[in-house]
Design a protein around this nucleic acid. Sequence first.
DNA 1: ATTTACTCTATCTAGTAAGTAGGGTATATA
DNA 2: TATATACCCTACTTACTAGATAGAGTAAAT
Lengths: 163, 163
Amino acid sequence: MYHHAIILAHSPVKLMLSKKAKYALKALLALADNPDDEPVRISDLAREQRIPPKFLELILLGLKNQGILQSRKGKGGGYRLARNPADIYVGQIVRMFDGPLAPVPCASQTAYVPCADCRDEAVCAVRLAMKEVRDATAKILDNTSIAALQQRVATTQSPVAIE
Amino acid sequence: MYHHAIILAHSPVKLMLSKKAKYALKALLALADNPDDEPVRISDLAREQRIPPKFLELILLGLKNQGILQSRKGKGGGYRLARNPADIYVGQIVRMFDGPLAPVPCASQTAYVPCADCRDEAVCAVRLAMKEVRDATAKILDNTSIAALQQRVATTQSPVAIE
DNA sequence: ATTTACTCTATCTAGTAAGTAGGGTATATA
DNA sequence: TATATACCCTACTTACTAGATAGAGTAAAT
């Protein structure tokens, strides 16, 4: 069992980060690591990153429509980054696929929606606590670029690779 | 629309904090505010906090089984806190209903599960970023008690109450 | 005894994440 | 111009879950 929830939630795994967002980040990191500027095929990316190919297709298309990737059709085609990896922030990617970072809509900066059951939001303790969480999360994700992650991984003391 | 997700996620509202956890926190705060030490009826709590009564019943029962509340049956019965509000932490409540705080299982401290698609976790950039988020969230929620929230709300400059 | 109010199990429903299917279209190369 | 390649796009399927409801059972107070 993945979590400790007691009452009803007994799924094997609860993901707050969707697979879509996760796959998107992995794909972007892989493209950022691509040495030459050659476009990378969906099928290659899917195999390397162990992502279902048709699913990855959807994701890359979304990233392209957001101007984060560019594509070339036909033979020799594929995807490549449309921007410098230092200008692609994790926060943007996560919001794009998973929506606002705030745990509750009433604590969201970018997509505020009041709670139906709230008597007085100004003194709502739950909102206060969740706003703190949102702010901390945003501070991290909106200041972490794909390039920064690349760099951190490169300098990480990795044990001997498992495979 | 509540969020910005582009591809598939088009729910009106995505909650990372479940209603259950939110209702639990609201109920605990209300019980902590209860002046006399009299037990509070589910029905009263439900009406005051605008929570579906039968749903609240489940939630309070869960809290009782965790030793956070105590109950008295029969006439004059109801629920009251089993501990000092200063010893009830938001992190515990959230984990109880929603599971681990980490956005991905491989970044969880309390319920670690590796990713199926990960080649080398030690150098997984997604995990690195999400671990940072988890740690920041845990730092906030595991250090915020019900009593602390009460206090913060009490000292908040609230505009004239809306109702 | 009887009312009150918590205890517990079962069930329902709408919505969604994750993934699949398949035809359409643009482009490079011969 | 033919043809293979590889992206483009819409629709669909499936399993699961959050959120909520129903109702019978049980303990306690008066």
